[in-house]
């Protein structure tokens, strides 16, 4: 059975996920997205994985959400508050979501994982560190290369060409 902390966290997470898509303003939407990401970090703490929770807080809430917030601020004011969607598509989308959630939920409720609980001690974070350095070091190096490549690619993509010819209206 789920406890009170779990229920509160799931209400916060799912509620702010819906709010991030439905708030009129994109700025409030990105702040609500921070709530979702923080709620997921809380779930990681409930699952006895404090290392992943801190990583999630540092990377997602600390950098990705702030990056999204700054990008939203670069966009024109009237576009931030404009809702771009079709009414008919919205009802179809809600129906699709409900069908999807009920179908997948009922399949999983009928499957064998319904009664899985555990009393075993959680994995220590020292084990994760040792795993990283012993087994996964080539993957770490590859990930560093991918990250630097993608950040360089992002900078090259977003670069302005011939800035001095740009006619800005300050």
């Amino acid at each position: 059975m789920a406890d009170v902390v779990f229920l509160a966290l799931s209400v916060i997470t799912i509620g702010s996920a819906i709010a991030s898509l439905e708030f009129r303003s994109l700025i409030y939407g990105s702040i609500a997205l921070m709530g979702t990401l923080g709620g997921i970090a809380g779930f990681f703490l409930l699952l006895d994985s404090p290392f992943v929770a801190m990583f999630q807080l540092a990377v997602y809430v600390g950098s990705i959400a702030v990056l999204i917030l700054f990008t939203v601020m670069l966009v024109k004011r009237e576009l931030i508050f404009k809702k771009i969607e079709d009414k008919r598509r919205k009802f179809v989308g809600i129906a699709l979501m409900l069908i999807f959630i009920t179908a997948l939920g009922s399949v999983i409720m009928d499957s064998g994982i319904k009664s899985i609980t555990t009393d075993e001690p959680a994995v220590d974070f020292r084990t994760i560190g040792a795993d990283f350095l012993i087994y996964y070091w080539p993957a770490l190096i590859l990930m560093a290369l991918i990250l630097s490549g993608s950040v360089t690619g992002a900078l090259v993509l977003a670069r302005r060409e011939n800035v001095e010819n740009d006619q800005r209206t300050d």
Partner: peptide
Amino acid sequence: MTNELIDFVLVSIALLGIGIYGLSV
């Protein structure tokens, strides 16, 4: 641990549904 695996899986299904709704609408 008081929480079961199915609770976490159901929350993740709900989040997946919300994400699919956002992508389609």
